[in-house]
Design a protein around this nucleic acid. Structure first.
Length: 357
DNA sequence: ATGGCAAGTCGCGGTGTTGT
DNA sequence: ACAACACCGCGACTTGCCAT
């Protein structure tokens, strides 16, 4: 994409671009020292573009469909190949010289077949992007629904307003420190990176040592709500309900809210509403490069104790939207699997082997 | 000892320049 | 033109000082 679109309000490229390389429409360019990260592209925006001299520029021969080749060059399989040819230098990353790059072998079906494959992949990608647009709309619907539900809460005369600390128990997690990085009681713990908007991501869980006494204090129970204590202003207060098994702990960048007075899912909806409407942002303190909602300020926030019937109403309306969201999300996941299977076929499919570049 | 938060580190997606 | 080397800005995450 264009540099000035990617970097809004600042110029990244040199003032003098006379040394830049030209890339015609249909040509490829890859960042010589970042190829292992998949930094390769097909120029299809304008007749002629230019890139920093660090890029290697090439075009393909007439028996190769560039859209097809682009898909292949971007595939996981080839990105692994790039790693093999990467020559690391002192710096963070090495480079893949064109001399090595051009020797990488790829399966090359007849031109007609290449075009078919590229079309199918285009279609799958289009479907994925439609579903993702749908998801974005649902996020708005969700906001609206939640806002409406919370109005019901504040409009109900039976709702009692109380401090967060009265509505439940607020605890900060255990701080990380080198002395806890090993020991006899290594236990998994959650941190900011795991607590996303409304759900917990377990794909990267770290562990540290928790003594039995600490385990008692920091163990999570189903129904606990975890909130981000500090981060950028928009992310402070992002929360999710913990519904996993015992044996999981949490770190100090998270605040735990444990309640017996209201339904946990209702409480999480309230926190989500606070996140949406900037209530958390207002309560946080912005330091030089990080915002913090302290446990103290959180405890003092005014929490609406709605009657059970209204709580259930909030949970139901939020869940209805959540269900549709779940369907679309799994649709996207399926399309991605389908796409991967197609690519895998291409690499294990035993079509005649050829060479490109 | 606890917890608030300033400041540091590191990864990532980018960028250049210099010597041969 | 290529190979090697070097840096930037930002955000995510960690460290550890300091006040209570």
């Amino acid at each position: 994409m264009r540099s000035d679109e990617y970097f809004k309000n600042r110029q990244i490229y040199s003032d003098d671009i006379s040394g830049y390389k030209l890339v015609r429409r249909g040509w490829f360019a890859y960042a010589t020292n970042h190829l292992t990260e998949g930094s390769i592209g097909l120029q299809d925006l304008v007749e002629t573009a230019c890139v920093s001299p660090i890029y290697t520029v090439f075009s393909c021969s007439p028996e190769v469909d560039e859209n097809f080749l682009f898909r292949v060059l971007k595939s996981d399989e080839l990105i692994i190949q790039y790693g093999v040819h990467d020559q690391a230098s002192v710096d963070r990353r090495g480079a893949v010289r064109y001399g090595d790059f051009k020797k990488i072998e790829v399966l090359l079906p007849p031109l007609k077949k290449q075009q078919q494959i590229a079309e199918i992949l285009d279609e799958v990608d289009r479907q994925i992007s439609i579903a993702q647009t749908e998801l974005r709309k649902l996020v708005k619907v969700f906001r609206g629904t939640l806002g409406w539900a919370m109005e019901r809460v504040s409009g109900d005369p039976r709702t009692v307003w109380t401090a967060v600390e009265e509505a439940g128990e607020v605890t900060l997690g255990r701080q990380r420190s080198p002395e806890h990085s090993e020991g006899d009681f290594m236990r998994p713990y959650l941190r900011v990176a795991n607590v996303l908007d409304g759900y917990i991501d377990y794909s990267d869980v770290l562990s540290m040592n928790f003594t039995p006494a600490e385990q008692e204090k920091y163990e999570l129970r189903a129904g606990d709500i975890l909130l981000n204590e500090g981060q950028s202003l928009e992310l402070v207060g992002r929360s999710a309900l913990y519904d996993g098994p015992p044996g999981m702990y949490f770190q100090k960048t998270l605040i735990r809210f444990r309640t017996a007075k209201v339904m946990p899912r209702y409480a999480q909806a309230v926190f989500k509403y606070w996140l949406n409407t900037g209530v958390f942002a207002d309560a946080s303190k912005q330091a030089t490069n990080m915002a913090h909602l302290s446990a103290e300020r959180f405890e003092a926030m005014r929490f609406p104790l709605a009657v059970p019937e209204i709580q259930e109403e909030v949970i139901r309306s939020v869940e209805r939207v959540g269900e549709v969201r779940g369907h679309v999300t799994s649709e996207v996941a399926k399309l991605k699997v389908f796409r991967r299977a197609l690519m895998a076929d291409l690499f294990g499919g035993g079509v005649s082997a050829g060479r490109s570049a």
